[in-house]
Every structure is written in C-alpha cells, then in structure tokens.
C-alpha cells in the first residue's frame, strides 16, 4: 500500500534555539488510522505544522500522498485537511460562510462548495447553526466546525491535532464514530491526542515522540503486546484483612473493599476468581486500574528520559 505521509530526517530549530525536532523519520500508510502521541512539548504539533505548511522546517523532507510539502506544495496541500489544536477561524463570520470560504481556497466553485458544506454541517450536527457567528458556538461545536472546514474539499489525508480536547464524553464518542466512518471510506487519519483511550480505540498504528525524537513506531497491537503486566481492581462485598494474599499473584489491599491484583503476561485471570472463591471473597465488580496504553506510554517516556 502506498504511503500517505513520509517524513525523513525532519529537524526544526526555533528562533530561540529550541530544538523541537531532532531528525525524525516516520511513515503513514494510505488508509491508516495513525496516532502520534507524546507528552506536552514533545514536538507533535511541530511535525503536523510542518506537514500542513504552518511551520517552516529546518531540514529534512516531508511528503503527502507522494507530493513534497515544500517542492510540490500545490498538490500536497490539496491532499490534506487540517484540524488544528487551537480554534483558528474568524470569530465574526458565520458557520456556513467559514466552511464555504475554505472550499473556495481549494478552488471549489460556489455551488459545489455550498453542497459540500451543507452535507458536512448536517453530518456534524451543525446545520441548525449555519447562520450563527462562530464566536457564539460552544467549545464542542467549534471543534466540529473545524472538522467540517478541514473536510470540505474532500482531502485524502486528514490531520487532527487534539480533536476532542475539552469535548464531553457523549460528543467525543459521536466524533469517534464520525472519524471511523471517514476512515472506512478511505481517508487516512493522523491524530494526536492526550486521551490515550482514544488512540487505543481508534488507531491501528502509532508513533510515540518524546523530546523531538520518535521513540517507538509500530502497530497498536504489537505495542500493546509488549505490556508485561496489567493491574486489575476488584471491588469486594466484604472487607478483607490487610495481610490478605492470593497465591503467587502480587496484590495490594487499597481499602477495606478494594484489592489491586497485578497480572503478569501469561497469568490467567480465571485463576484469580478461583482463588477468591476458595477464600470466600465475593466480587462486586472488576476494572483495569488504568488504560493499557497509558501504562506503556508512561513506561516508554520514563525509560527514554532516564
């Protein structure tokens, strides 16, 4: 499968001398749903800024759908839709005008632009707000407006920089459905997010960036398979003793009614239930302590920083 995005030895040194990217190399396949993760200030937005033309690279190469972002700017930009992290539309313009104007920048005739804008605003539940100035929208609506604007010209690659930041759970889930539909229709999606659950749910491949370097680039499945332990929390019906133990499982009694059990790769969760039943402990509920990807992410970043 062809590459939607190729980045080779990309560096960026800002005017104040800060080295934001230290020669990163990355490839995203066409049709992929790709996550670029990293702590704050790792260089995620700089990478996306260079690809979309908002940041000037210091050296290296980047191409979108085979078009160099600096040499073949016209075709590279036509292939790309960008949803930035910060709201960046004119606060005084109406929702419909913002989307139609963006279509015009991509050379779409008025009738074609209006048709595409209507379709997207309806799909993103913004059609009722089409005549509302953008400043009057809620945070979630503004995020959806930026998605509609980025998609109006039908890009093959969509970049989303923290698309669900500050969005409530219900809306976030509906945005996930929308993005998944879009990806199924063939749009390559590249996403940065702080919600690791979001990356785990949506993305097939992932790169982790820290201090301007790619520290991991692999498939989500392969990354998660590296997880050596996982912590499960069991809420029990009656209090257990402080010295409560479960055979060879490492456990921690965190409160009268809650036990944390660390399960190594290869250990069976069924055995925990068997042991708990033998000891007469009744389980009310069970959950994982934190998101699996989050555990790995923290380990990887810590390892690299150490």
């Amino acid at each position: 499968m062809a590459a939607a995005l190729i980045i080779e030895d990309l560096t960026k040194v800002y005017g104040n001398g800060f080295e934001a990217l230290k020669g990163i190399t990355l490839q995203v396949k066409e049709g992929d749903f790709f996550a670029l993760l990293g702590p704050n200030g790792a260089g995620k937005s700089t990478v996306l800024g260079i690809v979309s033309g908002l940041v000037q690279k210091t050296s290296g190469k980047a191409s979108v759908m085979g078009h160099d972002v600096n040499g073949d700017t016209f075709d590279a930009r036509r292939s790309l839709g960008v949803v930035p992290q910060e709201f960046n539309f004119n606060q005084f313009e109406k929702v419909f005008d913002i989307v139609v104007t963006q279509a015009g920048y991509f050379g779409m005739r008025a009738a074609e632009a209006k048709e595409s804008a209507e379709k997207l605003l309806k799909a993103l539940d913004l059609w009722d707000k089409r005549d509302t100035p953008s400043r009057m929208l809620s945070g979630g609506m503004k995020r959806r407006l930026m998605i509609a604007r980025a998609l109006v010209h039908g890009p093959k690659v969509l970049i989303l920089d923290e698309p669900t930041a500050g969005v409530d759970i219900e809306l976030r889930r509906s945005m996930w459905d929308f993005m998944q539909d879009l990806n199924r229709q063939g749009t390559t999606i590249i996403l940065t997010t702080h919600y690791l659950e979001e990356a785990e749910q949506l993305c097939r491949n992932i790169a982790i960036i820290n201090k301007g370097e790619i520290i991991k680039s692999t498939s989500m499945r392969s990354l998660l398979s590296q997880l050596s332990t996982e912590t499960f929390v069991f809420d029990v019906c009656a209090p257990v003793a402080d010295d409560f133990s479960l055979d060879d499982f490492e456990i921690k009694v965190t409160s009268d009614e809650s036990i944390e059990v660390i399960v190594d790769k290869g250990q069976s969760i069924n055995r925990i239930f068997t042991l708990l039943t033998e000891k007469g402990v009744e389980v009310r509920s069970m959950r994982t302590k934190s998101n699996r990807l989050e555990e790995l992410f923290v380990d990887l970043v810590k390892e690299k920083t150490a």
Binding site: G53, R77, R78, E86, F87, N88, F89, N90, Y105
Partner: peptide, 17 residues
Amino acid sequence: FGNKFQRSVEEMMVAPV
C-alpha cells in the same frame, strides 16, 4: 492583521493558494 490575530490566516496557509 485581524486574520493574523485570530489565526484565521492559517485557513489560507494550509490551502493551495
């Protein structure tokens, strides 16, 4: 300048204009 200030100038910068 208003477009720069509100960053809506980026709408043109990401487009093939």
